[in-house]
């Protein structure tokens, strides 16, 4: 680290490369190389040459496009919902201490320890048909709930629940950099809550929000268990769709093509994060 800092002043080209060498080597060896092989396998066929037929098929197949579209909007909606739900909790936790705050945090982070399969089971037992909510409603002589199980709302509820901790943790760690003193000072100068939030807090946690969204997009694009167990049979999200193409249809070519397409969407989002980081660096350098 010391070396890094010193040479950082001198440009740090070599020490930078040295510091990232190990993870990058692991990445190239066990991820990038296999990914590249898989990608090439979708366009180059030994003996017959290049072909982009599987991509043409995907983008002309209404069924595949409907699945992609569903994935996109479930991803967008779920990410926004997660941030909207997590942000007030994060703000509260940042500026409050005490045992209630500790309990709130412990509770809000709890879904992290619940494996998806169990989330699905708990969901079915609670919100599912004749689940505990229905049981209570019937006992109170009220009409039963319109169960979200096997409807498009099912996986969204499950995913928001399941993803709350990660979103909260990332926002909270970003908020850790907002000093209570600066917020207090601004409040003493007469700034309202909304002004405080938009003028002082938001700018400082920008990179955290972007990284939160990036992780949400990544996770949702490949989400499998919850959409599969809680959602309707069709349209499918890309995760279950790829899995089905791969094992049930025994069609690795089209499955890998779908994988490359999802990957491209995730990479596009990753690029936004990288650009934000690069911008931040220039801004403060």
């Amino acid at each position: 680290m010391i070396a890094a800092l010193r040479s950082g002043a001198m440009g740090g080209r070599l020490s930078g490369l040295l510091l990232v060498a190990l993870p990058v080597a692991l990445l190239i060896w066990l991820v990038l190389w296999p990914v590249l092989q898989a990608m090439v396998g979708t366009v180059y066929f030994p003996g017959t040459g290049f072909s982009i037929a599987s991509y043409t098929y995907f983008f002309t197949d209404a069924y595949s496009l409907r699945n992609l579209w569903l994935t996109l909007w479930v991803t967008a909606l779920t990410s926004v919902l997660r941030v909207v739900v997590a942000m007030p909790i994060a703000l509260y936790l940042r500026f409050r201490t005490g045992s209630i705050a500790a309990l709130v945090q412990a509770l809000a982070l709890f879904p992290m320890f619940v494996p998806s399969v169990l989330v699905a089971y708990a969901f079915i037992r609670v919100l599912g048909p004749n689940g505990i909510v229905d049981t209570v409603l019937v006992a109170l002589h009220l009409p039963k709930l319109m169960s979200p199980y096997l409807t498009p709302a099912g996986p969204i509820i499950g995913l928001v629940w399941d993803g709350l901790p990660l979103t909260l943790l990332l926002l909270l760690s970003g908020l850790g950099r907002v000093s209570i003193a600066s917020v207090d000072a601004a409040r003493d100068l007469g700034a309202g809550s909304w002004t405080l939030f938009t003028r002082i807090i938001l700018p400082r946690i920008q990179s955290s929000i972007i990284v939160t969204l990036a992780f949400n997009v990544l996770g949702l694009f490949s989400a499998f268990t919850l959409p599969f167990l809680l959602g309707p049979a069709s349209p499918e999200m890309m995760g279950p769709y790829m899995q089905r193409t791969f094992s049930d249809n025994a069609d690795p070519l089209n499955a890998t093509t779908q994988a490359v397409i999802t990957f491209a969407f995730c990479a596009a989002f990753g690029l936004i994060y990288v650009r934000a980081i690069a911008k931040g660096r220039k801004g403060t350098a």
Binding site: G16, P23, V31, G219, A255, A259, V274, R281
Partner: peptide, 25 residues
């Protein structure tokens, strides 16, 4: 913090750890 050749590219490449579905690999 440091500037080195291929920085943004390498950084972006880590995305493939999560973004590429496992079954293809």
């Amino acid at each position: 913090r440091l500037d080195f050749p291929g920085r943004n590219m390498l950084f972006l490449a880590f995305l493939s750890v999560q973004a590429f579905p496992k079954f293809g690999l």
